[in-house]
Amino acid sequence: MAVDMSMPILIVDDYKTMLRIIRNLLKQLGFENVDEATDGSAALHKLREKNYGLVISDWNMEPMTGLQLLREVRADAKLKNLPFIMITAESKTENVIAAREAGVNNYIVKPFNADTLKQKLTAVLGSF
């Protein structure tokens, strides 16, 4: 099934610079319907207000981390199947394992490039 390029995507990061970078790279890949949140709890609020097709979230944020957000999403009956990509500088094995156990769909380590982002989006959403 073809990827809906107009689907809303929520990007979550406490660094505004990183939000701009991800937004611009998504735009270059053809995804322009992008919303932003700066921590897990703000993201969760937005996810419950609107139907998103994908979440791309940082891990290290306050007060709610990306991992906590992921767990909340997977525990929510309406959101549990939402594709979720973690994009973070946390690169230890135990981090990746914890994210996978919490139900992450894919994992990008910062710093990342446009090709990696495209590969992971394709792996989660299908070819576009």
Binding site: M18, L25, P111, N113
Partner: peptide, 12 residues
């Protein structure tokens, strides 16, 4: 795109 990628450094 190269500029966007390079700006990752600020977060790190």
């Amino acid at each position: 795109t190269g500029i966007f990628e390079a700006c990752n450094f600020q977060d790190i």
